[in-house]
Structures are given as C-alpha cells and as structure tokens.
C-alpha cells in the first residue's frame, strides 16, 4: 500500500507542508526496466489515451515536461495507481507495484524537448 504523497506543486497553508510519506522508484535509471515499461504502457492500453510514445491524445502528453498532477516519481506513481479525475483509470488493482514503477521509469527515460512556449507561423 503506497503512502500518501505530497505534491511540491501545491501551496502549503501557513507555509507548513502536510505530513506525508515518500515514494522512491526502485528502477530509477534502469534501462531494461524502461523497456519493460514501454511494453506495459502498450499492453495496458495507456497509449489508447496518451498516444503512441506518450505524446498525448485524449489524455495529455506525458513526455512534454509539463504535468497536471505533478511530475515527481511518486506523483506519477499515484496517478497510475489511484487514477485521476476526468477519466484516468486506477490501475492499482490490476498492475503490480513493480509494473507501475516500470511505466514511471519508461516515461522518465523519454527525452523532454526544450519547452518552447511560442508557436510561430510568420518569419
């Protein structure tokens, strides 16, 4: 059972962070685990919403460096395990913890493009 995870993106009322556990990825930086994670990402139909390569579709891109619910390892784990509003299914019931961590590892292994906020059509 994963502990509650604190999001650093939140404002802490009174400047005091709530008590929370931490989660660390046991496969962090493991290239084989990232490869496994890519296969699990497809096998669990994650690409059905997030697109091939996790580039975004009905669901958001997971490789653009921007996050709705926080981009820390533990936050991404939580999003997969418990799901999120607006349609992200909770996979904690059918995926082993290791499988979720491998998906996190796969996403982490993707190159994040430089964040260019400007889309330009004229020279």
């Amino acid at each position: 059972m994963p502990p509650a995870v604190r999001s650093d993106a939140h404002v802490f009322a009174g400047g005091v962070a709530p008590p929370a556990g931490t989660l660390s990825n046991p496969f962090a930086g493991d290239r084989q685990a990232a490869g496994d994670g890519e296969r699990i990402f497809r096998a669990m139909n994650c690409d059905g919403c997030h697109g091939g390569g996790a580039l975004g579709w009905e669901g958001p891109s997971l490789v653009d460096g921007r996050w709705r619910y926080g981009g820390g390892d533990g936050e991404v784990f939580h999003s997969i395990y418990y799901g999120r509003p607006r349609g992200m299914p909770a996979y904690g019931g059918i995926l082993e913890t290791d499988g979720i961590w491998k998906i996190v590892t796969y996403l982490r292994a993707q190159p994040v493009p430089q964040d260019v906020p400007t889309e330009q059509w004229t020279p």
Binding site: G51, G52, G53, G56, W57
Partner: peptide
C-alpha cells in the same frame, strides 16, 4: 475515430 500517434504522426405548407 481514434488515431494512436507515432512520434511523427501526432504532432503525428
């Protein structure tokens, strides 16, 4: 209709 993307495709009286 659904189009899973490849990296090229989504951005492939």
């Amino acid at each position: 209709t659904w189009q899973p993307s490849t990296p090229r495709a989504i951005f492939s009286s």
